[in-house]
């Protein structure tokens, strides 16, 4: 009891200090980055969506390891969850008769729409809100719905993991192309002074690859969990 009271006092103290910090921040606020992106973002990267411009060009190196974290976690979860990677499985853990028919019917309607929406978000990542990571998550959710519709589905995890690794290779390869064309690591392979439209080629390719990779990674993760639930 004393411990909890002291804990609340500690948290209150931290909060009080943070209150001073927010007072402070409004004066300190430095908008160097914001101004830079607003002025140069579209011209330098060819992306109207400045968020995409950052994670596919200015800070592409971070995105590799963001994809890499998913890769490692997938490999780790599969290793931890079972001994044999070759085992075919992923049976749905819920009983078919307990899933309401209404839910299954609606899932059938929603599934193609979600898939299309996911692809739309991935492909238009440089024009509208979205991108590879977000769209990949949507596509993965759509695949998850597939398990509701047809719960006898079998998934060959090994194949997915192999494809996922190959896609990661491709991402590194596409990003490294700029070393040949521009002499710089991890940026757009189109020359810096080319038009916005031609720069978009690179953005679309990379968004699709990342979206693919994220979808496959998340798919593997929840397949591993479904198997645990058996």
């Amino acid at each position: 009891m004393v411990k909890q009271a002291l804990l609340l006092v500690l948290l209150g103290g931290i909060f009080a200090v943070f209150y001073l910090v927010t007072e402070d921040l409004s004066e300190l606020y430095n908008n160097f980055g914001k101004t830079y992106f607003q002025l140069n973002g579209l011209l330098e990267t060819g992306s109207r969506n400045l968020v995409t411009a950052i994670y596919l060009d200015y800070r592409l190196f971070d995105s590799f390891f963001e994809a890499g974290i998913l890769l490692v976690a997938v490999a780790g979860i599969i290793w931890i969850s079972k001994h044999d990677l070759n085992e075919k499985n992923a049976q749905f853990m819920l009983d078919r008769y307990k899933t309401p028919d209404l839910f299954i019917t609606f899932s059938r309607i929603v599934y193609p729409m979600m898939l299309v929406f996911g692809f739309y978000v991935i492909i238009n990542g440089h024009l509208s809100p979205g991108g590879g990571f977000q769209g990949g998550a949507i596509v993965a959710t759509a695949i998850l719905i597939l398990y509701y519709i047809d719960h006898d589905r079998e998934t060959n995890i090994k194949q997915i993991v192999t494809i996922e690794k190959l896609v990661f290779f491709l991402i590194v390869l596409v990003a490294s192309l700029s070393l040949l064309t521009r002499g710089e690591f991890f940026t757009n392979f189109m020359p810096l002074d080319s038009s916005v439209a031609s720069k978009a080629i690179y953005l679309v390719i990379l968004n699709i690859l990342i979206g693919f990779k994220v979808a496959l990674g998340l798919w593997t993760i929840f397949t591993a969990f479904l198997r645990e639930g058996r």
Partner: peptide
Amino acid sequence: TFGGWNNLIGI
């Protein structure tokens, strides 16, 4: 800096 950007922007 990766991509040859301004070093305050890139990694």
